[in-house]
Nucleic acid binder design. Structure first.
Lengths: 106, 106
DNA sequence: GTAATAGTTTATAGATTTATAAACTATTAA
DNA sequence: TTAATAGTTTATAAATCTATAAACTATTAC
């Protein structure tokens, strides 16, 4: 596979993380799987909107679904996803601190 | 800061990674800073397009610029950015292998 | 001063993403 | 069988993103 193709696929994984609700969902699923209705209640979204966002995340492979007859359970497909997210949160916090230092030195 | 606000800021960092060219740029800057013209040559983009993408990355804090009189040098603001990227590349590869296994078991 | 180099900025058309609403499907419970 | 629960799918308008082109700015070299 060419480099350009790898970059494209990798960008697609990033894109699946590039939305506040989707970050929130990853945060919610940190510890253990949760069913659709629980996620719906935690996030306070419209069910159709939530369903679409979950489907984006499943399609790109960062979430997994387990369906039983009464509920759909969503979980992170890998701890790496949540690790990558934490790193990006750290980048965010580092930048915030850096800016604070520039704006109010000492 | 509320959780929802953190999620939003974090999604903005992810969004800055969510483009093939921007992933390629991060890849290029892995080892050391590079000047605009070098990045232009490596990527083969239009200069106006490249300039816009670099500006997005600087604005959200994942890249830094150092300007001398003849050239603008871009570098990663933190190793964490590149680490997050590697993790996402791993997620991608893991998924790819998982799918292969499903399509052609054993 | 003039031309060349090294970019940035602005405008814009087309593509993609997003939120909402409405319709739909599948299972469970009465 | 009917109603309720648990979602998914589809349509669509608005917002955002992207690539390109053209104009612009700043520095260097002659």
């Amino acid at each position: 596979m060419s480099n350009k193709n790898v970059f494209k696929l990798q960008a697609e994984v990033c894109k699946a993380l590039a939305h506040p609700l989707r970050i929130e969902i990853i945060d919610l699923l940190q510890e253990k799987e949760k069913c659709f209705t629980d996620i719906l209640e935690s996030t306070g979204e419209l069910k159709s909107n939530l369903s679409q966002h979950l489907s984006i995340m499943v399609k790109c492979g960062i979430l997994q679904v387990r369906k039983d007859s009464r509920c759909n359970y969503y979980s992170l497909s890998s701890f790496k996803v949540s690790k990558a997210c934490s790193l990006m949160r750290e980048v965010l916090i580092d930048n915030h601190n850096k800016n604070k230092k520039i704006l109010m030195p000492k």
